[in-house]
Computed example of a mutant assay.
Amino acid sequence: MAQKAEQVAEIGLLIYPGCQLAAIYGLTDLFRVAAEWTGDNARYIRVSHWEATADDVICIWDSHPGSPHRLSHAIAPPSIIMPERMAPAPAAAAWLRNQHDQGTVLCSVCAGAFVLAETGLIDGRRATTHWAFAEQLAKRFPSVRLAEEHMVLDEGDIVTAGGILAWADLGLTLVERLLGPATMLSTARFLLIDPPRGSQRPFAQFIPRFDHGDDAIRKAQHFIHAHAHEPVSMADLHDVAGMTERTLLRRFKAATHHRPNEYLQLVRIAKARELLERTLLPVDRIAWDVGYSDPAAFRKTFQKLVGIRPAEYRARFGTASVPHVEAG
């Protein structure tokens, strides 16, 4: 006689206006697949879908109906609407707060962090979101301690995930927590996806801000971009901007959110990433071409900003191929 499978948890997936339905159904399938890989000790995760209306949140689907709900986890998925156009979701936020009060672990993926932040429960706490949305989240919810370099950030009762497809990373993280590492790895292999990734930094792009309204600082930025492959000094920058070094430092940080030297390194490393992706130039040559006379200093800076070494980055993201030489 087959052993009856044991329910280990119930995960509620929150459907709010504009959310990414691919994440809802993808997580549903991932947890269903995980149950197939629990071995002789058969276990499963109950999954329910909860839809937020204007003034309420109701269950609209249940993988194992027939018994009262007791959510161990609730997940706010990504949004397919850009954060600046996401409407407030007070009913969803109230529902999440109520679930948290009852002991539910709250999770978010990508822009789902904006819904989670509406609850006030991550004020003063670390959270991650998509690297491109971090500035917007910080403006709207300044009490949240952003840690956008993380792909998945587990704070115990709050778990946040970064990229728009990081629902897979979050799903596998929860499978590991609830069903064990062996089941998580088997699920990842079956679905042909990587185990949970630790960092967004290899994927994040440097996007310089030029629309800040400070013309003098914009001139300094333009100078850095034009001369990043050369030695650039503070004297060069305050001459171009027409201000003292102290004033330059203050206004540059206010306009770009970076100190001038940090900005210079970001510009150089962005160019190095492009060369690693698109060419087969040796790493030492790339270091020299983007402005580093010391390849060791380049490697150290690259790993600090990107999270992996240049050779690893090329192996993961390089698109150039070795030219085929026909036999003569």
Rank of each mutant, 00 (worst) to 15 (best):
L165G: 08
W167S: 12
D169E: 07
G171D: 02
T173S: 06
L174M: 03
L178T: 07
G180L: 01
G180R: 00
G180S: 01
A182Q: 11
T183G: 01
T183N: 01
T183L: 04
M184W: 02
S186R: 03
S186N: 12
A188Y: 00
L191Y: 03
I193D: 10
I193H: 02
D194H: 13
P195L: 08
P196C: 09
S199Q: 07
P202G: 06
A204M: 13
A204L: 10
I207W: 13
I207K: 15
I207G: 12
F210Y: 12
D211S: 08
G213H: 08
G213T: 09
D214Q: 06
I217S: 08
I217W: 07
A220V: 11
H225F: 13
H225K: 09
A226K: 15
H227V: 09
H229S: 14
H229Y: 14
E230P: 04
A235R: 14
D236G: 14
L237T: 03
H238G: 04
V240G: 01
V240C: 03
M243C: 04
M243Q: 03
E245R: 10
L249F: 02
R250G: 08
R250M: 11
F252M: 06
A255T: 02
H257E: 07
H257Y: 09
R259Q: 12
N261I: 06
N261Y: 12
